[in-house]
Design a protein around this nucleic acid. Structure first.
Lengths: 120, 120
DNA sequence: CCCCTAATTTAGAATTATTCTAATTATAAG
DNA sequence: CTTATAATTAGAATAATTCTAAATTAGGGG
């Protein structure tokens, strides 16, 4: 893995905020001022293709990137914040139902976070 | 609801293919040649905001629109096809866990459809 | 039925996120 | 060291979506 790929991979794995490509680019630029957006996109795509990280699509905001380990997400419909949610793993359930074709799943649970709930 | 809003709402509800804004625009144009993309986007956004339809985000393809009734999706990682999947409803489970904050959830299950499975 | 206001629609420019192209640079293999 | 391969750069290009301002339409009160 190249220098940038490694840095991007580590950033995605260590970040707790599910960074967008833009955020990764800006953060990376702090220590690697020469880096360019295309490099970040190239590397993120490459890492996704290799299965080393995963891409998260979220309506109304650019794609975010996340570590590969299976886990679910809690999305606040008020402020859009995205956080991890440790809930049971349904893998076995789905595998039983879909057989060999099954690959993985993505569960997003929408709610109003305490802060947004106060506002109403 | 205005003429266009109604037509778009019906199209989203009747379609079995989870149309993109572009597809809706092209289809609508057949009977309403004067319509313009912005109108489609405006109406889709308005319908989403009113909770009459829902938006689906899917990596690598533009947003799709779907009827509001809760159901899950099966996404083929090979060809990207998106289909409905009637699986159990976890609403009660999540509500118990999250309480009043809970709003809804979105479950996407990734697999390889039979056609794509053959190719390997 | 007409006027007024508000909402909708239009046209097209603008923005955002992302990809592409071609030239340049770095890396690894022989 | 030399060559081939892959990564990176710069910047243009594209795709999806939003914005702006003007024009049109629709509904409600006189």
């Amino acid at each position: 893995m190249t220098k940038y790929a490694k840095l991007i991979f580590e950033m995605v794995n260590q970040s707790k905020i599910h960074m967008t490509a833009e955020q990764i680019f800006l953060e990376l630029k702090k220590t690697e001022p020469k880096v360019v957006q295309a490099t970040v996109y190239n590397n993120l795509n490459a890492l996704c293709k290799k299965g080393l990280i995963q891409r998260l699509s979220l309506e109304g905001s650019p794609d975010r990137y996340d570590r590969i380990q299976r886990h679910d997400h809690l999305v606040c419909k008020g402020c859009g914040s995205l956080s991890d949610w440790g809930f049971g793993d349904f893998t076995e359930l789905f595998k039983k139902r879909l057989g060999e074709g099954f690959l993985s799943y993505d569960l997003k649970v929408f709610y109003l976070c305490p802060k947004c709930r106060e506002k109403t």
